[in-house]
Nucleic acid binder design. Structure first.
Lengths: 332, 332
DNA sequence: ATGAAAGCGCTAACAC
DNA sequence: GTGTTAGCGCTTTCAT
């Protein structure tokens, strides 16, 4: 049996309450008894049982993190931001992958709340009605990170994807392109449909260009899909001269597709994308892109959550972080 | 206040014990009362409190995962393997980043054990004496994943890095190279010093080649360091004609360094490396490499842990997984 | 098949 | 400044 607070109390000749006080840094303990208790703790190698503490205090110092897929660079980086701030505030993290499946997200929410997390950070490219309702019923604060909440009901941390997409496409238009493709993962995902695509179309319209549905190329969100898609795109009579890609691995797929066919970027085709990793700097030519501050989104989301958990006043629950453009070599 | 097992018991006109039985699927409940209890659970929206359950049962159905850095592809992939098997066996994961810092690893171990995890998976490129001792004292099973344990005291899941390095370097030798550099992250890390470097040297010796310390190029384990290092390497009078890199991002750094100077791979220099991500397939030329089954290492480690937690018989605690070579274009 | 009751290890009033 | 005591919400003997 592990040593408990009671064993320490007996050893130090004090009550459990006093031991509890020194363990929790309560000031109302005479220095001499504090020392005595600390010695007993040391000698017996006492380690507080966080589960018992959690039951008694109703705080677990644990937060839940529901994430689509931790093995991607995007969510790996985001998680690191969350984790570092969590460490700073002495929270542990229970991390679960949802694969963007609404039923799984729902299970996970119930599961995490059952584990009595003190708060939760949720990430997904779209939020189903059931998931939204479950989060609205949450017994603890919830923050959405890099996740679009069209109804503005939740605390969120994002960048303005719509505006960034608009600006990215506008650069391509300024360079004289008339036919610009938007290569994207599933448009069933809110972030693609209601943010990036909308920004893309707004840029086109404002420039007086036609919005051609055929130039919206919806594929699996994977490098290989993008690579393979180029062959199809190139065959078109009305093929694009520039590509706006939803993220960097898609962009690199297109880029390699183009180059492996013997064409040149940016001479024959220009490419711009959202950047989620160092991939954009690794490939040749390096990709011009919108740098998404993933780590910061995670960090700010976690910081926001700590405030919510402490019932602190929040000035603004919908945080929009700045992004920047990295001018590199895939756009002239 | 949340609804408790007691509320359900009163509502269904049974004792807490009976509610507990139906919640836990115990067969000793009359079907009619089972139904009645389930209806009450439904109506009151009762959700078991996992913390209370953990305190009473001494099982939290949570495992700890201590990992160097979740934002890297290597550990992201490894984690996903762990997480998927954990989900399969209905465990949650508490995930913490150590950045390979021994003091932090130690804190984390104590922290996780305090949270009463039922088991723990530990990853690190080297294991300090203090960390080793803490894990030996662990109150629950521990499995090392992708982590070298020279003394074979722990349950581990790995590939044979030494042999793989040996084979990789041998390929380069077969192609006629006499001066082969080993580009690696810090040699303070056991996996580099006692596995990969040893395999590299064994291949050299067996082929009757000199082992030149100058050709062991120890740098920060980062793309940019590798990229920058090429400039220095190239200046040497006794420069290598082939490179064996400790991992793919290092290899790509070297590759880009070489190409940006106007040289060709594999014509001027050949490169082979350990592969931890799809980066090796994304760059041009694609990298010939040793494919490390990261996902599987994670999955097998977690599976092993479940057996240990269930006191099942283990045939072999030191698991060595197969690896394979991907023959691509950076080696002729 | 069901219930009563004793904890699990700790926190948090409250009393002294 | 310190001790007493009543829970926190559940599991788990042990009776019946």
């Amino acid at each position: 049996m592990a040593v408990t607070i009671y064993d320490v109390a007996r050893d130090a000749n004090v009550s459990m309450a006093t031991v509890s006080r020194v363990v929790n840094g309560n000031q109302n303990v005479k220095p001499t008894t504090r020392r005595r208790v600390q010695e007993s703790i040391e000698r017996l190698a006492y380690r507080p049982n966080a589960v018992a503490r959690g039951l008694a205090s109703k705080k677990t110092t644990t937060v839940g993190v529901i994430i689509p897929d931790i093995s991607t660079r995007l969510y790996g980086e985001l998680s690191r931001g969350i984790a570092d701030v969590a460490t700073m505030y002495e929270y542990n993290i229970i991390l679960s992958n949802s694969d963007e499946r609404p039923e799984r997200e729902l299970e996970l929410l119930v599961d995490h709340f059952g584990k009595q997390v003190d708060g939760l950070i949720f990430m997904s490219d779209s939020v189903s009605e059931e998931v939204r309702e479950e989060m609205l019923r949450a017994p603890v604060p919830v923050v959405l990170a890099a996740t679009v909440d069209t109804e503005k009901k939740f605390a969120t941390v994002n960048i303005n994807y719509e505006q960034a997409a608009y600006e990215a496409v506008s650069k391509l238009i300024e360079n004289g392109h008339q036919k610009i493709a938007f290569v994207t993962g599933p448009l069933t995902r809110d972030i693609n449909r209601f943010q990036k695509k909308v920004g893309y179309e707004r840029a086109l319209k404002e420039a007086g260009l036609d919005v051609v549905e055929d130039l919206v190329i919806e594929i699996d969100d994977a490098y290989d899909s993008a690579y393979d898609s180029w062959e199809q795109i190139e065959k078109r009579t009305d093929k694009p001269t520039a590509i706006f890609a939803s993220n960097d691995h898609l962009a690199v797929g297109i880029l390699n597709g183009i180059r492996d066919k013997g064409h040149l970027v940016p001479d024959d085709y220009e490419i711009i994308c959202f950047e989620h990793s160092n991939l954009a700097r690794i490939v040749r030519p390096q990709l011009t892109s919108v740098v998404v501050p993933l780590y910061d989104i995670g960090a700010v989301a976690m910081r926001l959550l700590t405030k919510l958990m402490n019932d602190e006043e929040i000035e603004e629950k919908q945080v929009s972080l700045p992004y920047r453009f990295a001018q590199r070599d895939s756009v002239k």
